[in-house]
Write a protein that binds this DNA or RNA. Structure first.
Length: 634
RNA sequence: CGCAGGGUAGAGCAGUCUGGUAGCUCGUCGGGCUCAUAACCCGGAGGACGUGGGUUCAAAUCCCACCCCUGCAACCA
């Protein structure tokens, strides 16, 4: 039997899973399920990356040992995958013994090739990022762009992998395998990176303790990427090279978001080339999600509320929307209003209603699956449409064009609605036309059976509910037909009782949707965002009179202010220059957070923060009437 | 010249690699049907494919230049 091995990245456990993780994993799940439908022997891997300084830090923040912290985080991911109906066969945890032993074997193998050497590594380093910065990436203050902390100049003896050696071989491989990297835009990008030259990669960290030691020099911890990438092999038994490993390596698809394609398409293949192992067949980097046009951002509170949308529309609708609405390689803009529109138009009106109307007719006039009779047993147009749909679907799935794959299935769905309309089935109730009606309804039932199969990778639960109503579900868990069965018309057994149940996708009106979301948000603010009075009392707010203001040179947004708070004068940097001229703020009485720790912005010291309405434009919070400078505000 | 992505009907998007009648969904207007979840079916209107140049018999698609938007990064204490 043909094997098919697909992976998602192992997700870093220093934070909770979000919609981006879900997007990648759902896409991988669709492919895994699709290939199972084709009768392949599938292995689907996802998991978590549990090593590295960030995990150590996150653990410390919660006062936990790293391992305890990981033990707490891993199930959170697993729970989400269960909720999203992810059919992974393996869940990798990089703290597992199997992985650790596999990594040791892999690194040893690399070491033996002679492509690993020791050298001094020096540069500006950010400890929290575990990353060195090149001269080009350095800002004038030499701070880390993410953590804003001063970078340290670090000189370390470290081990390197001779990545540069594989430049030519990688170019050749990518050229010889046009489908190695998807989409084409990423492929071109990586080719140009390759052509401009590769630098050897440091594969060890001396300053990190939470990780897997290099087997040949245990003073060092292996660099997370080296360890993480090898999970794709360790997960299927690389350590012992057992039958599972023989079956599934090399992987067919490594699925991921576009930001990490470089590691997968250059570093990983190069390492495999070094140890003389076969390369994965496809590296697929999909686009990022935005929400209503804005980038997702934890700090700005822009996130996709999966819980709310799933509560309103269901898991399958969520899966459907993600794959139907977005072109997989490009960035996609997640809009709840679009999910709503898709749900009603595609799922409720087109598909759900089709099932319901067909079952309604069957129920009323036959009560069971009618026997198709010769002559004119089956309608050729419908049969041909099925053939085309199945063939097209296969091509599109191969190209990771999920949006067009679903569009193709929906053309078929609409085709059946059209068929019913054209034949005016509901008029054929008289005795002499009843056979004809039976034939047509049989065709419709067949079409629905096939639709259930075709959508099952995307919406597994819906597929089952459809089959139940169609009378086809068996008692076994996994009763879905194969893709092959779609090619053969006439599989539905006549005589079976259909059970028209509730609509599978009841329409959701806008008001309902908004109410649900609002209710959800209310409970969240109620329970999660409350602070205690003691917290509030920590804030020291004071009335401050601006006595001087000037722009900070070389900046667009910053003003340097001197303010009077009675007992003393403070210097404040405020990001209001786009909305206030220096002149216009002088004399204003504003509200100052007086006990905020000082910060230096653009080399200017700031000893506090002004309160302002952060809209467009920014508006300073002032007092209704003048009070003595320094007055406490509560 | 910081890096990256994008500009195609009122909205959201395909199509661009591999030039050849501009496509999908929603919305909108008109009609039909009444089996069905106020669903379904048919038809119409609506487009200088950001701008300007070039290559070509032919450009949304290839080349050059420019404009605009959005992320990231800066300068949000």
């Amino acid at each position: 039997m043909d094997a098919f091995y697909i992976t998602t990245p192992i997700y870093y456990v220093n934070g909770e899973p979000h919609a981006g993780h879900a997007y990648t994993t759902i896409a991988a799940d669709v492919l895994a399920r699709y290939h199972r439908l084709k009768g392949k022997h599938v292995s689907f891997l996802t998991g978590v990356d549990e090593h590295g300084a960030n995990v150590e830090k996150a653990a410390a923040r919660e006062g936990l040992e790293p391992q305890i912290y990981c033990d707490k985080m891993a199930p959170i991911f697993q729970k989400l995958w269960k909720r999203l109906n992810i059919s992974n066969d393996i869940f990798m945890r990089t703290t597992s013994q199997m992985h650790k032993r596999g990594v040791a074997k892999f690194i040893n193998a690399l070491y033996r090739t002679g492509d690993i050497y020791q050298d001094k590594y020096q540069g500006y380093y950010c400890r929290p990022c575990e990353q060195f910065f090149t001269d080009k990436e350095l800002n004038p203050q030499k701070t880390c762009p993410i953590h804003k902390l001063p970078l340290e100049w670090v000189e370390e003896e470290n081990y390197f992998f001779a990545l540069s050696k594989y430049q030519k071989q990688l170019i050749e491989h990518i050229n010889a395998n046009p489908n190695f990297i998807y989409p084409t835009s990423r492929r071109n990008e990586l080719l140009s990176v390759l052509k401009s030259g590769l630098e050897d990669t440091c594969i060890s960290r001396a300053s990190v303790s939470w990780g897997i030691p290099l087997p040949f020099d245990e003073k060092y911890i292996s660099y997370v990427w080296i360890e993480a990438l090898s999970n794709y092999m360790t997960a299927v038994g690389y350590e012992t090279e057992n039958a599972q490993y023989q079956t599934f390596w090399p992987a067919d698809v490594h699925m991921m978001a576009k930001d990490i394609t470089r590691f997968h398409a250059l570093l990983w293949p190069a390492m495999l080339m070094a140890v003389n192992l076969p390369l994965p067949k496809h590296i697929v980097g999909h686009g990022w999600l935005t929400k209503n046009g804005e980038a997702l951002s934890k700090t700005r509170g822009i996130f996709i509320d999966m819980d709310a949308d799933i509560a309103t529309y269901g898991v399958d609708a969520f899966r459907y929307y993600l794959l139907r609405e977005f072109s997989f390689g490009n960035d996609g803009d997640y809009r709840p209003s679009r999910l709503h529109a898709r749900y009603n138009a595609d799922l409720a009106n087109d598909l759900g209603n089709l099932l319901n109307r067909v079952l309604g007719l069957v129920n009323k006039h036959f009560g069971q699956i009618p026997e198709p009779t010769t002559p004119g047993k089956f309608d050729d147009d419908i049969k041909n449409l099925v053939q085309e749909t199945v063939a097209r679907l296969d091509v599109l799935i191969q190209e990771f064009a999920f949006d067009r794959a679903l569009e193709t299935i929906w053309e078929f769905v609409r085709g059946i609605n059209r068929y019913i309309q054209k034949k005016e089935v509901w008029t054929l109730t008289r005795a002499e036309t009843k056979l004809k009606m039976g034939n047509i309804l049989y065709d419709c039932l067949e079409a629905l059976r096939i639709i259930a199969v075709l959508i099952s990778p995307f919406m597994p639960d819906t597929a089952h509910r459809m089959r139940t109503q169609l009378g086809l579900a068996s008692s076994t868990e996994d009763d879905m037909d194969t893709l092959q069965s779609c090619q053969e018309w006439g599989q539905s057994p006549p005589g079976l009782t259909v059970s028209r149940g509730k609509p599978i996708f009841p329409r959701v009106d806008t008001k309902q949707a908004n109410q649900k979301t609002a209710a959800k948000q209310n409970t969240e603010t109620d329970t999660q965002n409350l602070i205690t009075f003691a917290d509030f009392k920590k804030l020291e707010l004071r009335a401050a009179t601006v006595i001087a203001a000037e722009p900070i040179e070389g900046t667009d947004k910053l003003l340097k202010l001197q303010v009077d708070i009675g007992t003393e004068k403070r210097q404040i940097v405020a990001g209001i220059a786009e909305h206030y001229t220096p002149k216009s703020v002088i004399g204003k009485q504003v509200i100052l957070v007086a006990n905020l720790e000082p910060a230096t912005i653009r080399n200017v010291k700031s000893e506090g923060m002004l309160l302002a309405g952060r809209g467009e434009p920014v508006v300073l919070a002032t007092l209704d009437a003048e009070v003595p400078p320094g007055s406490t505000i509560r």
